[in-house]
Design a protein around this nucleic acid. Sequence first.
DNA 1: AAGATTATGCTCTAGTCGTGAGCAAAACAT
DNA 2: ATGTTTTGCTCACGACTAGAGCATAATCTT
Lengths: 402, 402
Amino acid sequence: MEYAPATPERTERLDAARTSGDLRAHNRVQLLRAIHDSGARRTRSQLTHDLDLARGTASVLIGSLAADALIAESPVEDARPVRGRPTLVPGPHPDGPQVLAADLREDAWELAVCSIGGGYEILGGQAHDGTPEEALRPLAAAARAATSGRVVGIGLAVAGPVRDGVVDISHLGWQDVRVPEFFDVSVPLIVGNDARLAGVAEARRGRLQGVAVGLHLHIDFDPGGTLLLDGRPMAGSSGTAGEFGHMPLASRSLDEPCLCGAWGCWSLRVGANALLRHAGLAAGGGRGRALAERILASDGEAVAENARALGEGVAALVNALDPGVVSLSGMGVELLARARDEIEAAYLDGLMAFRRSAPPPIAPSSLGRAGPLIGAMESAFDAFLTPSGLQAWRELRGFGLV
Amino acid sequence: MEYAPATPERTERLDAARTSGDLRAHNRVQLLRAIHDSGARRTRSQLTHDLDLARGTASVLIGSLAADALIAESPVEDARPVRGRPTLVPGPHPDGPQVLAADLREDAWELAVCSIGGGYEILGGQAHDGTPEEALRPLAAAARAATSGRVVGIGLAVAGPVRDGVVDISHLGWQDVRVPEFFDVSVPLIVGNDARLAGVAEARRGRLQGVAVGLHLHIDFDPGGTLLLDGRPMAGSSGTAGEFGHMPLASRSLDEPCLCGAWGCWSLRVGANALLRHAGLAAGGGRGRALAERILASDGEAVAENARALGEGVAALVNALDPGVVSLSGMGVELLARARDEIEAAYLDGLMAFRRSAPPPIAPSSLGRAGPLIGAMESAFDAFLTPSGLQAWRELRGFGLV
DNA sequence: AAGATTATGCTCTAGTCGTGAGCAAAACAT
DNA sequence: ATGTTTTGCTCACGACTAGAGCATAATCTT
């Protein structure tokens, strides 16, 4: 029997080392990633064991990273009495690479500068009126002002679907807004959906750490989310995967239209807009957050209905996607605190029978409102922490030092 | 600002080469994979270019694979006049590795032996009465008889969810059937859901070739499927991802119970069981396939209803998962041929507005009923085509030749 | 039919990498 | 003050890939 051969492209692997030189580049990245992922908290000796390196190899690698000003070694802080030659902690270099991370919400933005290891400092923020001009111009100006020679990338979280930097926020009337055109910077700009970036943050520094398959749901006006596979978000073919809010997961009527253009969407039942709608108020347009929060605090029937719909939808997603943990951020945290029983009852009821013996836990985010910002940082670093990223940094420094 | 460090485990990459020795092992695998994926049809010279190898390196690698009886080179078949020294085509070695692949359906099974390159030969098959004993004993015996020293793995497709080799087929009353215990063989046994394996086949040799994110749906009694990311099926945390049939994707009533234990499932509206139910006949239990096929051939309202529900559900899945192509196998092929208009109308209507300008195509499988079998073969080879798999083969041969 | 041209395979040298042993360094324990 | 323990540095060694030079085997040209 015969059939068509597979395409040769499929055999290519991006992260595969082929030559000896690739090997060194690969191992440099791996070590720098380990330092970053551990929060610049592990000692050189611990890292050597973590990555199963020979001491000689670690010596060369650490030395080369330090020579490129990618890291600097400093003494352990809480030096308890330990026998043997003291080891050092590799951490961010004083002149080392940084990324900018920004979180652009419906009503304000925030900008931070971040170092290897994940430490960050808020540079500023500003309220805006919701138009692309008023929101993006000042943010872009602030980012440009902060873009020193050390900045190797910018991550930006926005509250809407993103396709190649083109953003739609139906709430605010944003249609095909080309975000990168506002930014006059020469470093890579990573624009991502806030729900997805919150999920990335959760996978790297929050409740989804070490989880092979995690489902993160960010509930704001609408529910959105992402599936995290080994800490990487599933992007989809056009970068817009994760719009779980636009499946009919808890619908009682497929004839009810959603603003997205589809019918009977989950987002008509879960999130701030659903709370408003249940109270007979106008929903959509990105307005009414304060009102929705008051309804949530009232613990009324609207909240219970929201909770049931959340549980039903999560059950459907778990049935299909089989995650190990489900994490919630945004309004989901408070909803879980107020109505866990309703959520869990609907959740268990909606699971396939064979999943009920060990249902994946539903956990609140541990990162608070910082999720999208941290996710933006991690995404920007992801683009830098590659063989070509480190190579570009080395060459740039070479020019600067001549 | 600070927060918890990431787990060190996350930094580990299974397929990463660390030492020079790993490099050679990695490149051997890569080359052998390229030969296999291309259907053993590309010449040595083409492969050298595909993988961007130096001729010297290719020489060594091909030589070492040939020395281990993993491949054998033979002249090109349709030798058209070409200038230059003629090149050879690496293909399966006459004593090279093989895998067994089996497709276990509700009423019969089939067993095949497969070589590097993807060629296979059906060894036999048998009808059965649906009990685990009657279905699995003869299959296991046939597999054992066919397990020569050349066989390095067995892939088995079954029509139900699989967790670590434990199978449930509610149709047939199979509950927690431990399939591996029936097989008295010493080579790895890969048991997989048939819908998922059909998707794997589609991604490697069918309509999803070269598609970065593909959604495959296999429609039999129920709809099931898998998401294919760079040709690899998304397994989920317990191996049971892809049960899209048990989301309420086209439900008009969340109070309608499904055999799976959940409510309002898509599988109540799509597939052979839905056809039977629409005709007022008993559904479930794995019976009525012939009847359902007759209903399908009648082109009546039941078919139109099935088609609409299929379109609605695919739209919801596309909204959330953002695949580049959707492929259908099983009953989906005929449904698509008979009712493409109904399917597409419901599909477009259910998409988010911004997806309607370039909706992912819905394409019928190009592999016919062989999908699960081919997927089982590919999965078994996946387990072998690794550094450790090739190493084990070399050692085994070493003993044999002494 | 014989030489020129062309593409491929083989062989060998050069450069690079990681390993691991041996030694130096820097702490604690006695 | 001396021994013990752990870590960092250095260097010889084996293994790998790249690339150049040569051999090989076909087609093309005259």
